[in-house]
Structure formats: C-alpha cells, structure tokens
Design a protein around this nucleic acid. Structure first.
Lengths: 239, 239
DNA sequence: CGTGCTCTTGACAGTAGTCAAGATGAGTGG
DNA sequence: CCACTCATCTTGACTACTGTCAAGAGCACG
C-alpha cells in the first residue's frame, strides 16, 4: 500500500526491512476522497498526517478577494502534511484536485518513530525538507520566470516527481487538473496559461490536452524552463 | 551565545536545561563574516550547519541572466541551513547581506542529538518546517500580491521575527539592506521597490530610510498586506 | 440533447519593467 | 578639512507582459 512512498524514499536513501515495517504500521486507515474537497483547513488542530496514495492533492492559501495560490502539488507517494506533525496546525489548506486515495498516519505513531528510529526520523525530516526545496524553486518561478518558463518548469518538475514513483509512460503522464488549477500554481490567470500552453504546443515542446501531458522534447523543455533537477535531491545516500 | 536561538525556540515550546546544554555543546566555532559574502554554494558537500548570531543572511538562487531570487531572509537566532543536515548539499546559496556573526554546528553533533534527544530533534525539525511556512507565504506574495502589498508584507514579517528575538525597538528596527536586496526578495525591480516605498511613506504606513525601518501604523500596514501572523507559529506548545 | 464546466480567442487595460539621468551620501585620500 | 568616488536612491518617459472582460466553441455528464 505504501509502495510509492517507499519508491520515493528509496530514491534518496536505503530503508531497512524493520523501518519499512514501522512505516507500514504507522498507517491507521485508508480513505477515498472525491475531487475538489478540502482535507485540512488552516488553524485546525491535527492529530494525523496524510499520505497520498493516488490522485493529486494541493496545498493552497486563499486570499480575501477569492483568489488562491497553490504552494505545492502532491503526487502519489507524498506525505502531504507530514509537517503538521511538528506544526500541530497548518497555515494553509490541503485539498484534492482529482479523486484521491489517502492513508492516515496518527501523529502518536510518528512520535513513536522519533523515539525508536532515529534514521527513519531523519528520512521523514528529509521529506519535509524536500517539500521546502520545492517551495523555493516555485518562489524562483513566481518571482523571476516568464509565464512561458513557469509553465514549462512546472511540467518538468512533475515529470521527474511522477517518474520516480512509476507514474510516467515514456515522456507522458496522466494529469487530470484544469488550466485554472495550473494558473493557481503559477501566479497567472487561466487565460494566460491557456495562451502559454498554445505557445508550448506550437514550439513543439509540450502538449497538455485531455488530462494528459506529453512532452515532445524534454531537453528543449528543460532548457526553456531553466530547469535543473538538483533541487529534487534524486541521489541515494545516507541521510 | 545562542540566546537568540533559545528565544526563538522558547517562543514555540519549552526547552529543558539539558536540551539547552546539548544545543550549546553543538556549536564548534564562531566566525565573523563581512557583507556580501557567499557562505554556502549550491551542490557543495556540507558537514556543518550555520546558526546566525548577528546580521542578515539570505538564501538565494541565481538565474542564468544574472538575476537572483532571494527565497528567505534570516535574522539572528535562525538556523540558516539546518536543512543541510538531511539534504547533505543545498539547492541554493547562503550569503551575507550585512556583516554577520555566525556559529557553526557540525552535522555529527546534530546526528547525536537525533540519537539521544527526540524532543529536541522534533523542535529542530519544527524549525525547518517554519522556514517552509515562510517560503509558502512568500509564494503567495510572489504569485498573488501587488507590489504595494508585497513590500508591506515583508516588513510585517520582519517586524514579528525580529521582535521575538528582541531586535525591535517599539515599532522600528535596524535593517541595513539595500532596496535592491528587497527587490530580490519580492520579485520586483529595485526601481519599482523605490516607487512603492514612496507610496508606503506617503500613506503613513512605513518609513525605510537610512538602514532603519519605522512602522507608522502596524494595524493599517498589516491590513494593506493582508498579513496574518499565523504562519509564523508564535504559540508555545509541546511539539 | 440540454446544461455546465472548461477551453479558446480577441480587444483592450494596467501594473511593473526598462532605460536613462541626476541627486544623495558615506567613505577615502590628498 | 575638503574634494572625489562609488554605490545607492530617486524620478521621468516609455515599453511590454500579463490581466481583464467578453463571447463563443468544445465536451462530458445527466
């Protein structure tokens, strides 16, 4: 059940059989959630964290005028709100963008891991630091990249993140979000995302239609985005 | 020496005398660094983390065309690259914006803390999660806020962060960065930051001149920025 | 075969960027 | 003690990227 989490973590470090069992035992419950549902609201007291098994989740913040900014997308294998274990409540929403399957992990079981499994603890800590690295790269996109590079960058990131959990098929992947969802990741309007997707298509870099992304030319796409996968920490080493 | 770190952490949880000693003992060395020096470069293998004792540090990423995006500012008491403990190398630079005093903390001593002090480990983990929360709020600024609100928001954040480590004097604080530094935090040009600072001055919200920030009307400034301090997790509770 | 949601495109608007020049001010050397 | 220098700040004129508004097309679902 937690294979995708294990794929994600094992891409970064080795995990012993005992640690694997500890992770499996940490799950208390599995749930299916329809799309566009809020799972966690800001300020709520939290006693469980959410592991995403299937579908796409977003962390997002709402603004007074009704706009929202998505601060990170989550793909299967991601611990969407592991950080709530130390934060106790969140500063943002967590919600589904597609129908999702999630596993719940009670904080008390995580606490037991921190008492008994220092290395696994560091690996979970690493996982939240990886989320922070993704936040930083998004800050660069939002602050400095053109709309064209921003869109290209997002699809490069998703390609690599989905790839390590086995959810790509060559250079394409299923991606059932709307253009509005994408615009809320990128600090753009949906109209402008639409225009930019057309440009990417016309440049033979990428096609995103019918809930599917097809990358036509990964090297050129990454160059256009100034994408460097280093921030995803894809090397396996002791942590 | 680590009083500001203790002030910062004790604003969020209690720390025992034993834990305090473990933190003190983790420091191996103290250094003074001039301004505009790079302390950590991306990709470098790291075996120590940097605790900022005095001055302002920035985490930033360089772009091909020479622009840079600052992804977080660090104030005294911040563990500027504690995340390198699990990441082993960084995806960004860490550099001084003013002359700084820093303490070095070897990763092996942090590892010993994770083996022997689970609660302190969670508190350090919390500290990196707090950095991520700041990243998220910056994503919202960069993606959705107007220049006016962005500038206002940054100075609100700094006010609160400096306040808990005792570096504010009423509603003012020392802030020896340039307008260019500020523009690199906010995804704006220095010229536009300059114009926006004039607007803030003319609106009687804030003055930033001569290396000093004076907030004229905190409530109005926070309202203009749509600032909500929740993301700084200023409540003390078991973590 | 409607009904809505999403996608697409065009025309126009506005916020922030670019370029350029002069002012200010702190630190340096004669 | 007074130029001088260099970085930073300031302002104006113009540009452009992205947003806004609006309308129609496409498509999945009931």
């Amino acid at each position: 059940m937690i294979e995708k989490l294990l794929l994600k973590l094992r891409a970064r470090d080795t995990i012993s059989a005992e640690e694997e069992r500890a992770l499996e035992d940490a799950v208390s419950e599995v749930r299916e959630i329809p799309d566009n549902k809020t799972i966690v609201s800001p300020g709520e007291e939290l006693a469980v964290s959410t592991l995403l098994l299937d579908g796409f989740l977003a962390r997002y913040k709402d603004l007074r005028d009704g706009q929202r900014q998505i601060t990170e997308l989550h793909v299967p294998g991601d611990f969407a709100d592991l950080h709530s274990f130390t934060l106790k409540r969140l500063d943002h929403n967590v919600g589904t963008l597609t129908p999702c399957k999630i596993a719940l992990v009670p904080h008390e079981r995580l606490e037991r891991i921190t008492e008994a499994f220092p290395h696994l603890t560091r690996l979970l800590w690493f996982s939240t630091n990886l989320d922070a690295a993704i936040h930083r790269e998004w800050e660069v996109s939002l602050g400095r990249r053109s709309a064209f590079a921003r869109v290209a960058h997002l699809f490069c990131e998703l390609y690599h993140r989905l790839s390590i959990v086995g959810l790509t098929d060559g250079l394409s992947y299923d991606f059932a979000l709307t253009q509005t969802d994408v615009s809320e990741c990128l600090g753009l309007t949906a109209v402008h995302v639409n225009r930019t997707l057309r440009e990417l298509r016309e440049s033979d870099l990428l096609e995103f239609r019918g809930r599917k992304v097809v990358i036509s030319n990964l090297a050129a796409l990454q160059a256009a985005a100034e994408f460097d996968a280093d921030y995803l920490y894809l090397d396996s080493r002791p942590r």
